Simulated assay, not measured.
Amino acid sequence: MKFMSNRKLVALSALLAAVPAAVLGGPALAQSSLAMLDTLEKGAWELRFRDGTAPRSICVRSGRELIQLRHSEPGCNRFVVEDGADEVTVQYTCRGNGYGRTNIRKEGSSLVQIDSQGIADGRPFQFSAEARRTGSCR
């Protein structure tokens, strides 16, 4: 009898956990805690996009605000692809408004690198940005 490696077993478990939500159309349950995002400092953060797009400020309360920067509506289904101590990757689908995949790499509690791509409002998007804490939320 051939056994699966731990990596294959974890991937299969994650896939099977997402199947009921996909079949039933309900929100996917988080397979992981995304604990790295909880270690980020709360407050006002500035996003600086590498393509020259004007900087944007957001209020970070949990760190999860950084996942769906192009999809602000609530209720999107999320699937955690990677949940590491210094890096997370989340794929999400927003019914009727597209989807995205975001990778967030922590450089410090007040500095992260973000790469995201997907479809929003029927149009593709892709961006890389640096997010840095700038103070308290107003």
Rank of each mutant, 00 (worst) to 15 (best):
L47Y: 09
R133W: 05
L12V: 05
K106T: 03
P20I: 03
L15V: 07
L66H: 02
L111S: 07
R56V: 12
M36K: 01
I67N: 07
E65I: 14
H71L: 03
H71P: 08
S62D: 11
F49T: 01
R61K: 15
N97A: 01
L34H: 06
L24R: 07
L24E: 14
G52M: 01
S32K: 07
M4Y: 04
E130L: 01
F127V: 07
I119V: 09
L12N: 04
R7G: 01
A120T: 09
L37A: 06
N77Q: 14
V90P: 01
A22Q: 02
Q126H: 04
T89W: 00
E73W: 13
G75S: 04
V23F: 04
G135E: 14
A131S: 10
G135L: 14
T134P: 10
S72C: 14
V88S: 05
A22E: 05
V88A: 08
G122N: 12
L9V: 10
C137H: 03
G43A: 12
A35H: 01
F127T: 06
S13P: 05
N97W: 00
E87S: 13
A35C: 09
Q68F: 11
L29G: 13
R133M: 01
D38M: 15
F3V: 11
A30L: 12
D86S: 10
P55T: 11
S5Q: 04
I58V: 10
T39Q: 15
Q91T: 11
Q91W: 05
V90K: 08
L15Y: 11
L69S: 00
F49C: 04
V81Q: 10
E82I: 01
P124T: 13
V60M: 12
C137G: 03
L111Q: 06
S72Y: 15
K8M: 14
C137D: 03
G100A: 10
A14I: 07
E65T: 04
I114G: 02
L69E: 01
N6C: 13
F3R: 06
T89N: 05
D121G: 15
I58H: 02
D38V: 15
L66A: 13
G108A: 13
R56Q: 14
E130S: 07
F127L: 03
F125S: 08
D115G: 09
A18K: 00
R56E: 14
R50W: 10
T89F: 00
G135F: 00
W45F: 07
A129L: 09
S110M: 05
G63K: 04
R70G: 03
L29Q: 15
Q117V: 00
T134C: 05
R95A: 12
A21H: 00
T93V: 15
N97L: 02
G122P: 12
A11K: 03
R95H: 13
A17N: 08
R61G: 09
A11Q: 07
Y99T: 15
G75V: 14
K2L: 09
A17I: 07
F79Q: 09
L40K: 03
S62F: 02
S33D: 12
E41V: 02
V19S: 12
G63V: 09
R101V: 11
T93P: 00
A35K: 00
S136D: 13
C94W: 07
S136G: 13
P20Q: 12
F49Y: 02
Q31C: 04
F127I: 02
V80M: 10
A129N: 13
G52N: 04
G118T: 08
R101D: 05
R64P: 11
E41N: 06
V60E: 03
H71F: 06
R7W: 10
D115S: 12
A131G: 05
S72D: 14
R95D: 11
D121Y: 13
